[in-house]
Write a protein that binds this DNA or RNA. Structure first.
Lengths: 187, 187
DNA sequence: GTCTATAGATTGATAGAC
DNA sequence: GTCTATCAATCTATAGAC
């Protein structure tokens, strides 16, 4: 693998683990086995490399979610599948974790992967909720977009609860609560 | 106000805005109008001051939530009130925002205010859900603790969605979705 | 209790050889 | 394309005067 590629992957790992402020160019170079000159040859600086890495992480997450949401099963099955999907809970969400970083959200180019990912995800889940309503699986008197936003937020907030507790259980408790609430929409 | 107090309040502000890694002792001193010597006289270092500030922020949030949850109204009213409570959405949650900081969660003393706050909050909301079930307002066939975790997570995740979007609306959409799901438990 | 001076390490970036 | 050397600024903390 070439140096550029190693730099992007090292940046993806470190951004997930340490965030944008917590990740130094030096640390990325060390993990990638590349020198200063190499990094500044391929990228204009830290922000440029971070943007590339973040975009790639966002694309990966989106593709992974689409496999679930566009797969087989009833709408309720797919929504439940999204909530119960296996995740590395204590590592946090590789996309959503950056929402708290003031420098990252202040830069439109760095925030773009976050905005795109969650706008798409909310819209995609809303489609599935609407499908469920049309199929008569779910009550039709709720706003699909609002329910979708609540489900995405439950997952993102689940990471917050688990990391705050230092253990993964609160994440599962939150998503199971969402599954139960969703089931009430089906009765 | 004395220097110690000014340092704690300056640290509370900066930790909320910039997080732990993003806040330097120097920046706290500047905002507090205190010198290096003053800060290191009252606190052993950055972590000690941050712990004090974070604990105070957590106590304030808990007291604010208890006013709502222990107030009047039906259980459903109080749960809805928690979800719809006015918040400074784009600033993020002053407690939950720290869950993504690897240095903070790695230090048990710094993580303690987060763990305590959310453990209490989940438990307190679970009590209200259980009250609602006993009063016949809410269906009794769901786990109160799971529903409570889902509601807290919706709020925490709502911050993530709003900050990722650069606008507050996704927060309100998520909490309204949770309100709608909760209403389905009442029918 | 508060100040200034100082310290060693790290940050993010540039220069220039090869 | 990659390396080493260097840079000014900042980080967190300590020392010691007052």
């Amino acid at each position: 693998m070439n140096a550029r590629e190693r730099l992007v992957e090292a940046a993806q790992d470190l951004l997930w683990e340490r965030g944008y402020v917590g990740t130094s160019p030096r640390a990325i170079q060390d993990r990638a086995g590349a020198g200063q000159g190499s990094m500044y040859h391929h990228f204009t600086g830290k922000a440029d490399l971070a943007r590339t890495a973040l975009q790639r992480t966002a694309d990966r997450e989106r593709a992974g979610a689409e496999v679930l949401l566009g797969g087989g099963g009833t709408a309720l099955d797919r929504l439940t599948g999204y909530l119960r999907r296996e995740r590395q809970v204590l590592r946090g969400c590789p996309v959503g974790r950056h929402a708290q970083d003031p420098d990252l959200v202040a830069d439109p180019e760095l925030r773009a992967p976050l905005e795109t990912t969650f706008t798409w995800l909310r819209g995609r889940l809303a489609e599935v909720v609407a499908e469920g309503q049309q199929a008569g699986e779910l009550r039709a008197d709720v706003d699909p977009a609002a329910v979708a936003a609540a489900l995405v937020a439950t997952v993102q907030g689940g990471y917050v609860l688990a990391r705050s507790a230092g253990r993964p259980e609160p994440f599962a408790e939150a998503t199971e609560g969402a599954v139960a609430l969703l089931a009430a929409l089906a009765r």
